[in-house]
Design a protein around this nucleic acid. Structure first.
Lengths: 280, 280
DNA sequence: AGATAACTGCGTACATCGTACGCTGTAGTG
DNA sequence: CACTACAGCGTACGATGTACGCAGTTATCT
């Protein structure tokens, strides 16, 4: 785990890597090798022994370990043991651990639900979408602990993006606005899912107690005179409820969708495609 | 870096640690030791040699290293060298690296702007607030790479929370809703700041190119027939603009604030304090 | 004043990781 | 059958977080 938390001083980008044999269009910008892998754009070399494993098996085993022991415990050695191979064998399939993580996360997302703009309006569609992403994160909480290091290019990530755009197809929003709304909701769901995962069973990622205690802890720390607004909040009981966490998701999503609705209304009645042009 | 990415199977919580000498109120729930430190609730022991360092110097040096070389390069050894002491000396001030990071992040946030509900309405206040958080993250991009592992209890975090609540004081929202709105905005700003930081200078955390290329990369990967909505978006040029990133922030914030405004309007005209009770 | 206790600085040691390198064996190709 | 490109993987290295315990320091107690 290095590149995933590196700061300004890390420029290990290029290095043409090894097995890039793409059937992809020529271009100045190259596809990151991981992405070629994820889309299955790699030809298997003709010569040499047949590989004993497959990328899919690596990813599946990685997900299994991450699910049962947490990503924190997922080391290359651990994964190799799971698969009954030597540690270094894994590097025949994946050029670095980060690649594996990228693949695992994309895989964990799964396929998006089919959204038909003809039978569902944008709000239903985006709600379905957001709940779908949340469900995926609920199934694979470890995915939330993997930092995002690159824009979403994996097959499932892209499919989800497409689904969100389709949900907004019958909307007067510009393409830019559709993308922005999607980004907004996607980030929101990820945040909220992380919170939910941390709160679940009262243990944060560090292992400490979290939610119902939060108000109590805050109260212990506050110089009673400053922080009057916080005191009001604490004493209103707003920080003591246990099931708040589920409400947070609905609350946030409704707020965001209301905001998008307000934007759509600015385009005036009549709806329909329009695209381009800044909001009035 | 272990606990920060650990999954389900990590229960290293307790262990009464060493130097807890709190002047804090009795309670069943203990304050995490780091938090006592952050609020300066530790008495210096009477006996023994005077410490050669201070927590503040640790934190300041940590921030300096993180700022210039990235958090990824901030190791205990590196920090010790910066301070001209032995590595293990640091553990006299901080019980683990995670504590140091927590302290650093809280410190990086700085003090919130003063928000007076009498002269600013809630929307101005929250806008100011959001921009303040964003500015802090812009000053300390490395803070975005430190995973959140516990609810915000540091002095600055708490002060920012208070400020957000104060901005909404003259609002009919319930305390619960004020907190939820704050959480929503706070998460949003963090997300957006992370994206901005990654996009800045075209390098993601992994070191790859990011933004203007994103549309191009997507286009390389898409089976042209599926993903029609995405194709529309790409060809609209929505993914090619360079300065979109700054617009994203405004867009998202406006959407969220519009959503909050919609909620406030549901309370009907007249405004004023009310609190409690679910929305009509 | 001397003894004692509490504390600080920190050297050493260890366990864990990611992964570069290079050797050995294998499966198609010429 | 030789050759070549590739698969599996043992070994080794450099980082890193931190437990442990020793030696020196200082305030308090006798």
């Amino acid at each position: 785990m290095a590149a995933r938390m590196d700061g300004p001083g890390s420029a290990d980008a290029s290095s043409p890597a090894s097995g890039e044999t793409p059937a992809e269009p020529r271009s100045s910008t190259r596809l990151p090798p991981v992405i070629s892998l994820a889309w299955g754009l790699q030809r298997r070399p003709a010569r040499g022994p047949r590989p004993g494993l497959t990328l899919d098996r690596l990813v599946a085993a990685g997900i299994e370990v991450a699910s049962t022991e947490g990503v924190g415990s997922l080391s290359m050695g651990r994964l190799a043991k799971q698969l009954g191979v030597g540690t270094m064998s894994l590097y025949r399939y994946v050029s670095a651990k980060d690649d594996l993580l990228t693949l695992m996360v994309d895989n964990a997302l799964g396929r998006p639900p089919a959204i038909d703009p003809a039978t569902q309006d944008w709000r239903e569609g985006l709600t379905l979408w957001a709940e779908g992403v949340r469900a995926a994160y609920r199934r694979h909480p470890w995915a939330l602990r993997v930092p995002i290091t690159a824009p979403p290019l994996g097959p499932n990530n892209v499919a989800w993006l497409e689904a969100a755009l389709q949900a907004q197809a019958n909307t007067p929003l510009s393409e830019q606005e559709k993308l922005s709304s999607t980004l907004l909701i996607s980030g929101f769901v990820r945040n909220e899912s992380t919170l939910t995962a941390d709160f679940a069973r009262g243990a944060g990622a560090g292992g400490e107690q979290v939610m119902p205690k939060y108000g109590e802890l805050l109260a212990m720390v506050l110089p009673e005179d400053r922080f009057p607004a916080l005191h009001r909040a604490i004493h209103s009981g707003a920080l003591s409820d246990e099931d708040d966490i589920d409400h947070e998701f609905d609350f946030g999503l409704q707020r965001i969708l209301d905001g998008v609705a307000a934007l759509i209304e600015q385009y005036g009645p009549g709806g329909g495609q329009s695209g381009r042009g800044a909001a009035p």
